[in-house]
Design a protein around this nucleic acid. Structure first.
Lengths: 176, 176
DNA sequence: GTTAGTGCAAACCTTTTGCAGCTCT
DNA sequence: AGAGCTGCAAAAGGTTTGCACTAAC
């Protein structure tokens, strides 16, 4: 699995496999979703309540610089934090629904083709590539159509599409 | 030019064209580079010293939500701020050199192809798309080769590629 | 004259840093 | 033993918000 190859790579570099890092690596590897630092911290705290948020940031930074995880923004849906995923799967694009927040992954040859064209066109050496697409998923397109209809029938709310989008977005979480 | 079409679009929406917005729009439109909020603020202050940073943020947010500008991260080279560009050109990818920071723009059919495939594959309605590629430009590849050679000859500095990359990156600017 | 927009100050969220103490190897 | 890590506290960077005042239409 992914975990082994990451731990191997770290050992090679002389990076210590502390208890904290083992917890974090396992979470990043085993969790299906795209985690941000805060979420990862909350999950890690369940396994070790003393584990500090700073350690999470430091570990993520190290993994990113070592090329072991990729950093995503997911079109800033949900805020300005970064999300992380292990760098094992084939290159893929992230497709984010701006209404419900669902993230799909798209694999397909246009991505490789794009990479190759950029390399040959500019003589560029590609190390990282990130494609993020925002819009409405099939499900939310239908729901939105109904919402717009409702607005026509009940023109009480003078909200454009902006208000609609905002309302669907969960409020930014605040730390106590 | 771009400015007129943006101003027209704003007028249609009943958005007021204040002096501040005119300054900001002109800067965004006329400046070649990809500006972040702080840089835009500095430039705007030269034209109107009273113009507030908050107004810059509010204007950028409005333009973004109105689909008039696109928000970029440029692979977080230079920090976590966002960059903006008017949404007029054809869709394109941004190619960022992680050593010198140069940004190239890549137009090409793989981008349209990718968009079409995502729309048909997921039944997704694409509103925004962003592709960012990080690596080394042709120029910096050559320089890096020399740097690595130097390290072999003078193994005094135990810096891996990470240190090399970091050193090239200008320190994060701090507000006074 | 209304209502949207601005400036100011203060908050907020996310991430980084300095340093003393702990712990892998 | 000693370099590398962690935790804590505090700061920094980037962005947003509340509110009273101003200005565009």
């Amino acid at each position: 699995m992914a975990l082994d190859s990451i731990e191997g790579s770290l050992k090679e570099r002389g990076v210590r496999l502390t208890r904290q890092r083992q917890i974090l690596l396992e979470l990043i590897d085993k969790t299906g979703e795209h985690l941000d630092a805060e979420r990862l911290y909350q999950l890690a705290k369940e396994k070790d309540p003393k584990l500090n948020r700073v350690t999470v940031y430091r570990t993520l930074k190290m993994l990113k610089e070592g090329g072991l995880v990729d950093e995503l923004d997911l079109m800033h849906y949900g805020g300005d934090q970064h999300y992380y995923e292990t760098r094992l799967k084939q290159e893929h694009a992230h497709v984010i629904c701006l209404r419900c927040g669902k993230v799909e992954e798209f694999f397909g040859e246009p991505l490789q083709r794009l990479r190759r064209q950029i390399e040959s066109h500019f003589g560029f050496q590609v190390l990282l590539a990130r494609t993020e697409v925002g819009g409405y998923c099939a499900h939310c397109q239908a729901l939105r159509a109904r919402e717009v209809e409702d607005l026509r029938i009940l023109p009480t709310e003078p909200d454009g599409p902006k208000g609609t989008r905002k309302a669907a977005k969960p409020a930014r979480s605040r730390r106590a």
